[in-house]
Computed example of a mutant assay.
Amino acid sequence: MKRNLIRHVAGAAMVVLVAGAMLVGCDAKSAGDAQMKFVNVEKALVESGLLKQEQEHLKAVNENLHKGQQLAEKSYTTLPADKVEAARQADRNVLTQQWKAQQQAARNVVMKAMQTTSDAYRTEKKISVIMPTQAAVSIAPELDVTADLTTKLKAVKVDFGKVPEITLKTAPAPEAAKQPAAKTK
């Protein structure tokens, strides 16, 4: 009983696949009329300079995070010896999280610039879809728009926002810590 059911399902699936392939083949366009184009995303990002902009921003972020680490190291001199390693590890964790967040944010900005430029190009050229070349097994050379998009991306200056500044939390002054908190009515 199970074998018959499996055979019927497999047979029905084959009929649907063959019919679908035939229908797709009937409506196929030649490569020159295609509404789908392809872009080598990595090549476009590298050759356009967007990745260089990202690297420069991340270098500035890394320098500030390193300064923050040095600032934190100086503050350990006022801590009891048994608390230094815990504070050091906590600071490393915070800086590592900040570094990862900044890397992801920078990549998001670069990819948003890629998407915005691709959308404008797609609309201008009346293309339905632009896919990454990595998604295709084989591409006709006339369907590759990497050079055109790279040229357009060279004019893009991305804004990564402000480089994060690292500051230390300061403990309240001893006199202020002894005074009662102000009450509000």
Rank of each mutant, 00 (worst) to 15 (best):
M1R: 15
L5Y: 12
R7K: 13
R7V: 13
H8C: 06
V9G: 01
G11C: 07
G11H: 09
A12W: 09
A12E: 13
A13N: 06
A13H: 06
M14H: 07
L17W: 09
V18M: 14
V18N: 06
A19K: 07
A19R: 04
G20H: 05
G20L: 03
G20A: 03
A21S: 13
M22S: 09
L23I: 11
V24H: 12
C26K: 14
C26M: 14
K29H: 09
A34D: 03
Q35E: 11
Q35V: 06
M36E: 10
K37R: 15
N40E: 13
E42H: 11
K43W: 02
A44M: 03
L45Y: 00
L45H: 00
V46P: 01
E47G: 01
E47K: 06
S48C: 00
S48R: 00
G49F: 00
G49A: 02
L50C: 01
L50R: 00
L50N: 02
Q53F: 02
E54H: 08
E54S: 15
Q55A: 15
Q55G: 10
H57K: 07
H57G: 00
L58D: 04
A60Y: 06
E63W: 06
N64E: 15
K67P: 03
K67T: 07
K67H: 13
Q69Y: 12
Q70P: 05
Q70S: 15
L71W: 09
L71R: 13
E73M: 14
E73K: 14
K74V: 09
S75V: 08
S75M: 12
T78G: 14
T78V: 12
L79F: 11
L79G: 04
A81W: 03
A81R: 09
E85Q: 15
A87W: 00
R88S: 05
A90Y: 06
A90N: 12
R92D: 11
N93E: 15
T96L: 11
Q98F: 06
K100T: 09
K100Y: 06
A105N: 09
A106P: 05
A106N: 06
N108T: 10
V110D: 00
M111E: 10
S118G: 10
D119R: 02
Y121K: 00
R122I: 03
R122E: 02
T123I: 10
K125A: 08
K126W: 01
K126D: 04
I127M: 01
I127N: 01
V129T: 13
V129P: 03
V129Y: 14
I130R: 01
I130M: 04
P132R: 10
Q134N: 13
Q134G: 10
Q134Y: 08
A135Y: 08
A136N: 06
V137D: 11
A140M: 05
A140K: 07
P141S: 13
T146V: 07
T146N: 01
T150E: 00
T151I: 09
K152T: 03
V156H: 02
K157V: 14
V158I: 07
G161W: 08
V163E: 04
P164Y: 08
P164I: 07
P164D: 09
E165F: 06
L168P: 04
L168Y: 05
K169L: 15
T170G: 08
T170I: 10
T170M: 10
A173I: 02
E175D: 14
A176R: 09
A176D: 12
A177R: 08
K178C: 07
K178H: 05
Q179C: 02
P180C: 04
P180G: 06
A181W: 02
A181Y: 03
A181S: 09
A182E: 12
T184A: 12
